[in-house]
C-alpha cells in the first residue's frame, strides 16, 4: 500500500485529489500520510479534498427516523426540513413508520404543533396518546376540497409553529412541491405527503421520496429519491420492537378461527 501512495504523489495536484476521492477505501493510510505530507494539508485547506467522515457531522438528534436500518440508509435520518413524498396504500404501517420520528420531534420542539391534514379516516386519539404523543400539540384539519388541503398545508408549514405536517393527498404537481419546499424552508418544517401508488413519469422536486410496501415483519421502504443518497435502496424495517403484535412472523400467537374466516368469505 505505501507503494501506491508514493506513486500518486508524483501526479499533479488536481489529479491527486480525484484519485484520493476514488480511493476512499485507503482513507486510513491517506490519513496517516497527510499528517506528514504538506501537499495533502494544502489540498485540505483549499477544500479540494473530501473525506467521507465529513458527511456525518451535522446530523441532529431530532432527524432520526427511530429505525436503525432506515437511519443508516438515509445517512442519519430525515432531512431537517422539506417535503417528503411517501407513496403507500392505506393500512400497511405508513403512519407507524413516521410515529417514532414524530415523537422525537415533538419532544424536541415541545411548543410546536403536529398537523394532520385530510386524513382518509378519523384519527384515533387513543393510539396517539398511547404512543406517547401530547395530544394538545396536535391539530387535525379536515378541509372540504383537495385544493384547500394543499392551501392549509402551505399555511401550516410556513407559519413557523408546526414542526411536522402530514397530509394525505392524491395529486401533486411539480409547482405544488416547489411552493411547499419554499414554505417548508421558511417555517423549518417537515412535510410528509402520503399518497397512493401512481404511474408517474416526472420526478418531483422533493427532498426525499419513498415508496412503501407491506412486509411480514414490518414494512419495506424503497428509497426513490434523496439528496446525497445512494438511489434505489430497499430497506426492510422491523417494527417488532414497537408493535410486536402487528407482525406476520409470530406463528405462535396466531389463533386460527376457521369458522370465522369462512363466514367472512
Amino acid at each position: 500500500m505505501p507503494n501506491k501512495i508514493t506513486f500518486q504523489i508524483k501526479l499533479d495536484q488536481t489529479k491527486l485529489a480525484s484519485i484520493l476521492i476514488i480511493n476512499i477505501l485507503y482513507i486510513n493510510t491517506v490519513y496517516l500520510f497527510y499528517i506528514m505530507h504538506p501537499t495533502i494539508h494544502y489540498l485540505k485547506n483549499k477544500k479540494l479534498l473530501w473525506q467521507a467522515c465529513h458527511t456525518q457531522t451535522d446530523i441532529k438528534s431530532e432527524q432520526t427516523t427511530g429505525f436503525t436500518s432506515l437511519d443508516n440508509a438515509l445517512q442519519g435520518g430525515y432531512p431537517e426540513y422539506g417535503v417528503i413524498d411517501i407513496r403507500s396504500p392505506i393500512g400497511i404501517g405508513e403512519l407507524r413508520l413516521l410515529l417514532p420520528s414524530l415523537l422525537t420531534r415533538q419532544r424536541e420542539f415541545s411548543s410546536e404543533l403536529i398537523t394532520f391534514i385530510a386524513p382518509p379516516l378519523s384519527i384515533n386519539s387513543e393510539m396517539l396518546a398511547e404512543f406517547g404523543l401530547n395530544l394538545k400539540q396536535i391539530l387535525i384539519v379536515q378541509p372540504k376540497t383537495q385544493a384547500l388541503g394543499l392551501w392549509s398545508a402551505e399555511q401550516s408549514i410556513k407559519s413557523g409553529c408546526c414542526h411536522s405536517v402530514i397530509i394525505w393527498h392524491d395529486l401533486v404537481s411539480v409547482t405544488h412541491i416547489k411552493r411547499l419546499q419554499l414554505a417548508a424552508e421558511k417555517g423549518q418544517c417537515l412535510l410528509f405527503i402520503i399518497r397512493p401508488y401512481q404511474n408517474e413519469h416526472i420526478s418531483l422536486p422533493v427532498s426525499l421520496g419513498m415508496t412503501l410496501a407491506p412486509a411480514k415483519e414490518g414494512i419495506q421502504v424503497y428509497i426513490t429519491k434523496g439528496k446525497g443518497l445512494k438511489p434505489k435502496q430497499i430497506v426492510n424495517i422491523n417494527m417488532h420492537t414497537y408493535w410486536p403484535e402487528l407482525s406476520q412472523l409470530a406463528p405462535s400467537k396466531v389463533l386460527h378461527f376457521p369458522t370465522a374466516i369462512h363466514k367472512v368469505g
Binding site: 403512519l95 382518509p120 379516516l121 387513543e126 393510539m127 396517539l128 398511547e130 408493535w243
Partner: peptide, 9 residues
C-alpha cells in the same frame, strides 16, 4: 390507555 389500538377508526 389501551395498547394495540388502530390509528384510524
Amino acid at each position: 390507555l389501551q395498547p394495540m389500538r388502530p390509528s384510524f377508526l
